[in-house]
Design a protein around this nucleic acid. Structure first.
Lengths: 209, 209
DNA sequence: CTTGTAAATGAATGATCGTTCATTTATTTA
DNA sequence: TAAATAAATGAACGATCATTCATTTACAAG
């Protein structure tokens, strides 16, 4: 690591600019959408001429792809390294992790599911693979809970998508100035999700239709 | 009505073209996003020259606004006129209605929540007003159920958004060719939603954290 | 201090955008 | 059939787009 310090130092300025490009693109993409944002706007935010962006990213598409790849990698890594009280069950861990992460990284999350269709096919496939890994975490939790008889066993993959859609929608309406704190939201969603899938003792699955 | 038949007839051809513009724009916007669709593409789909579009819509923005206004109006009207078995409770009605409607009008729904940010401020406000009306239907159902002691009383507005986000996400992954039919999906979501908010007799609200 | 390279500039490229408009074509009214 | 009006055409407008590139500037290495 120390042996490469000089080399790292050499490219420090370029790295810094690239990071500012990422930050500017993130905000712009989140607010206006990929297709509505111009390279000129990003360059202006960074304080640089449009052409200079191409010293750091080959195309506009590469910026979007970089942001989405980075988001998925960080999301999966954050889950791996997250720590929770020992007594907390897996489902509650997942819900709390997901809500927290999505409330703290609203822009990244928003882009990552709004701009999927603006990814070129190859990039799209890569991102979809990462997304499926994340969904698999929750599906596995639900399946394990179903085996134990604690959760309802029906359609764990569908339930996964239902839960994730429910949670991912939070940043769209949550406002710091609202009546509920982030912690309140977290608690409420834990409750909703647990109730949705819990098979209460002595309570058989309801018949509907 | 009959007295205006001649006048209606006069504009019948224009109406037909306008409808085809709507249909083409709907598909294109849903697939690629408003900003990524050109008036030339829409005109080409309709089988007309770009300039002809302006005989029916003043601007590209007006097309988007027309689609979203139409969707919200039809959604609210469909709820008003929907009929269900007498014995079915309000929450189940809402969930079944919402799932069905969204599975049948995937493009309209997708546009209406993906393209909100591409609406100019005035148009956005109008659509938001309609959207709030729709959310209010579910909130009222939850509040009434809470008064009766059937549903958990916490944060009905937040729960409304959680449920709607969960349901609205379905068209994003549902495929006719998948293992579950539309009817299966409907049943499963009814179950999830009912469990999420039901206060089972003798079951006090769970403590979390 | 010189050399090599990274980073940024400034100007230009061709393409495409939404929109306008005088004109032509189609259809309906009188 | 003649007049009126709706609808569509074809060509053009200026603006903006992503991207390229020869050149200049900044900076670290030897």
């Amino acid at each position: 690591m120390a042996a490469q310090d000089t080399k790292v130092q050499t490219r420090a300025k370029g790295q810094a600019t690239a990071d500012r490009v990422r930050a500017a693109a993130m905000k712009r993409f989140a607010q206006a959408g990929y297709a509505a944002v111009s390279m000129r706007e990003i360059a202006s935010d960074v304080g640089v001429r449009p052409g200079a962006l191409y010293n750091h990213f080959q195309t506009k598409q590469d910026i979007l792809n970089d942001l989405m790849l980075g988001h998925m990698a960080q999301l999966l890594d954050a889950w791996e390294t997250a720590d929770f009280p020992d007594h907390m069950d897996a489902l509650e861990r997942f819900v709390r992790f997901h809500v927290r992460y999505h409330l703290e990284r609203a822009d990244e999350v928003f882009i990552s599911y709004m701009e999927l269709r603006n990814l070129e096919p190859d990039n799209f496939e890569t991102i979809e693979t990462e997304r499926r890994k994340y969904e698999a975490i929750l599906t596995e939790i639900l399946e394990k809970g179903a085996q134990d008889g604690r959760y309802t066993p029906e359609h764990p993959k569908v339930t996964t998508r239902a839960i994730i859609a429910m949670l991912t929608g939070i940043p769209a309406w949550f406002r710091e100035s609202g009546p509920l704190s982030k912690s309140d939201i977290e608690d409420h969603y834990v409750n909703l999700v647990q109730n949705a899938v819990l098979r209460a003792p002595g309570q058989s699955p309801r018949e509907t239709g």
